[in-house]
Each structure stands twice: as C-alpha cells, then as structure tokens.
C-alpha cells in the first residue's frame, strides 16, 4: 500500500512538471452537450464570441464564493463588454435539486451572462474542474489559455487584465 502511494505522489508530481514545461500544447474546450436556460441542448464546442476570446466560469446557486465572483463581474460586465467585447459563459453545476433556481436567480440579480446548465457535471468533469468557482479564458480557436480556481476579492480584476492581454495578442 505504501508503495502505491509513493508511486502515486511521484506520478502526480512528475506529470504536472512535465506538462507545465510544455506551454504550446493548450488543451481545447471539450465537446460536451449541455443545456441553455430554456433547456435547449447545446454543444460546448459551439461556445464562441465573434472571433474573440471568451470566459467560461463554473458556479452553483449554493456556492457563496461563486455568487460573490459573479456579482463582482456583473458590476463591471456591461462597461467591459463595450470596451473589450468580452463574453462570459456562466456554467451552473446545480443538479435536479437546485437547477430550477438558476433562472430566477440570474434574472432577479439582473445578470447578463450566457447561462449554461451542466446538471450532471459532464462539462465540469471534461474540463477537470474540482470545485467551483473555476474560471477559464478560452481563445477564439477554442484553446484554454488561462484558468483560475477559487475566488478572492479582486480576482475579477486579475481575470479582466488577463483577458485584455490575451485579446490584444490575438
């Protein structure tokens, strides 16, 4: 048992090292069928933003830091959209217990994100998300260019800076 633990640790360690060495090979947004707020099916590889990069943010109605993050981003969203053309996909991982609260919450808070329902965490698994909130910036070609886990006050500004940098490069 001890040996397999050692192997495991070694393996995880070397792997993350190996992988971080290689920055050219960015992972792509996977192809998973999820739903829109109206329950219509949509494939995640159809997420797009008129040739500009976009943001994918995993959240849930019961996740306090997620709501703090989304509410901080919502405050800046409309002015930011005008300035940079940013688009945010807010992927809810609420399951059958709470998914019906997503739409009233989004509307009552007057959030303008593209809301996606990932009821059985299929997209979450495909994107390696451990726990929400988890935010990605996706390039226009569907490549994952940046990601961040958790939320602390001010993280939204860091994300926006990163977005502007990426948008400029393209």
């Amino acid at each position: 048992m001890k040996r397999s633990f050692l192997f495991f640790a070694l393996f995880v360690f070397c792997f993350s090292f190996l992988y971080s060495q290689d920055e050219k090979q960015n992972a792509k947004l996977p192809s998973v069928v999820v739903k829109t707020l109206d329950q219509k099916q949509i494939n995640s590889n159809e997420f797009s933003n008129d040739g500009k990069p976009f943001v994918v943010c995993f959240w849930a109605t019961w996740c306090k830091p997620c709501l703090a993050e989304l509410s901080a981003m919502a405050e800046l969203y409309s002015s930011l959209q005008e300035e940079t053309g940013i688009k945010i996909y807010a992927v809810s991982i609420d399951d059958a217990r709470t998914v019906s609260k997503v739409k009233p919450l989004i509307n009552s808070r007057d959030w303008e994100f593209e809301v996606i329902l990932d009821e059985n965490s299929e997209l979450r698994r495909a994107m390696g998300v451990n726990n929400p909130p988890h935010t990605f910036i996706i390039g226009s070609n569907g490549e994952i260019l940046w990601q961040h886990v958790g939320y602390a006050v001010g993280d939204e500004e860091a994300m926006i800076e990163e977005y502007k940098k990426i948008a400029k490069e393209k």
């Binding site: 059958a96 019906s100 609260k101 739409k103 009233p104 919450l105 989004i106 509307n107 009552s108 007057d110």
Partner: peptide, 17 residues
C-alpha cells in the same frame, strides 16, 4: 412526481416546486 414552475423578469424571480 416532481414539478417546478418559475416566473422571472429583470429584478424579480419566483420559483415553486
């Protein structure tokens, strides 16, 4: 049996289940 119904507009939302 499981039923949910909602009504929501800008600034207001209701959900019953």
């Amino acid at each position: 049996a499981y039923i949910t119904a909602g009504y929501s507009v800008k600034g207001f939302g209701v959900n019953v289940a």
